[in-house]
């Protein structure tokens, strides 16, 4: 590019001018060498994210929490392992879960900050293009309309994935250096699944905020809507469910069956919330001794030895949670896709 600039800065002779005219007349060269436009959109969006203040602020925030929780878990890891702890064999996973209560452990923090990250990456995806007048310009290019929304989603997903994998491996690597115990293959796989789960969780919030960015004209409104949903689910929903639980509480005389039904109902109500799905799933993945996410009857527990589950079984337990998260992500994306495709693209 520098070379071209330099040559162009030279005085333009008549000959050059003729060349220019010839070049202007020439049709664009064969499309073989140029990358696919979808790539172009993804590239641009990724670089936009990385250059934005917003992302960098969140990155710093997440890095801080990450190191904070790592520090807490490392200082408490000795106390965390008790002689009769069924998770004792999974010493390395304690890095992600151990805490003395001053700072929540890693997975809880991510559960808290993940939505914020997702919302901040997506809340102005479409409406900022619309308000900036770039949407109609981009749509006038020979690309399919869904390239834009898909490209934005994929770009954000790439950014999130890279971030979480980097964070996960960073915590693993530092933990390895500090505690000196290498992870077993099982632990490693659990951590990989944990990271994938994080990405999925953030992807849900990302899609929700992309949906808002399609539906709402103002970026600020859409950000606020995203945050409102997040706050509602993290704070108010819990309160509401607790109220409902009190109202529905079976009497003391109720049968065991009724109590069980009641317990399951309340749990399922909690599980409408994606953050509950996420925390259920992470807990199961990071604490192999978790055998069930619902109430267990005495018959079920009778004779069971409190031992950790293999990875496959843990995954089987969280399968409904995973499906739920994937489904809500897909629903959000489908809605935003649909409403974006139907929309008439007007200039500003």
């Amino acid at each position: 590019m520098i070379f071209i600039t330099a040559t162009l800065k030279e005085d333009l002779s008549m000959n050059r001018l003729l060349n220019i005219v010839a070049l202007l007349k020439a049709p664009p060269a064969a499309t073989g060498r140029a990358p696919h436009p979808f790539r172009a959109i993804v590239d641009k969006e990724v670089s936009d994210h990385l250059r934005s203040w917003r992302f960098n602020i969140l990155l710093v925030l997440i890095l801080l929490t990450c190191f904070g929780s790592l520090y807490i878990s490392v200082t408490n890891i000795g106390k965390a392992v008790k002689p009769d702890d069924p998770d004792g064999a999974f010493f390395f996973l304690k890095l992600f879960t151990a805490s003395d209560g001053t700072l929540p452990p890693f997975h809880v923090l991510i559960g808290f900050l993940g939505p914020l990250l997702g919302i901040s990456l997506g809340f102005d995806a479409i409406n900022s293009e619309q308000n900036g007048g770039t949407l109609s310009r981009i749509m006038a290019q020979p690309i399919h309309r869904d390239y834009l929304i898909n490209g934005k989603f994929v770009a954000s997903l790439i950014v999130i994935s890279v971030l979480f994998f980097a964070l996960g491996f960073l915590v693993m690597g530092l933990g390895l250096i500090i505690i000196g115990v290498p992870p077993t293959a099982g632990e490693f796989l659990r951590i990989i699944f944990f990271i994938l789960l994080n990405i999925l969780y953030v992807a849900f919030w990302l899609n929700l905020s992309i949906l808002f960015s399609v539906l709402l004209r103002q970026a600020a409104t859409s950000a606020l809507a995203g945050i409102a949903v997040w706050l509602f689910f993290t704070i108010f929903y819990q309160i509401i469910i607790k109220l409902v639980a009190k109202a529905l509480m079976p009497s003391e005389m109720a049968s065991g069956q009724a109590v069980l039904h009641y317990q399951e109902l309340i749990l399922n109500l909690f599980r409408i919330v994606p953050s509950q799905l996420f925390s259920d799933a992470t807990t199961t993945l990071l604490m192999p001794s978790v055998r069930s996410l619902g109430p267990l009857t005495m018959e079920q527990v009778y004779g069971a030895i409190p031992s950790p589950l293999p990875l496959g079984q843990s995954l089987l337990i969280v399968w409904p949670q995973l499906t739920g998260l994937i489904a809500s992500t897909v629903v959000c994306f489908a809605l935003s896709y649909f409403s974006f495709m139907k929309r008439e693209i007007r200039p500003r």
Partner: peptide, 28 residues
Amino acid sequence: YLPDEVGFYEHRSGLENLLYTARLNRIP
């Protein structure tokens, strides 16, 4: 197509904006 109020990516230079359009048109 040039819309009446054309918008560009404000944090990018004029050249970068043009090159992005070119990429979307698959121009090497």
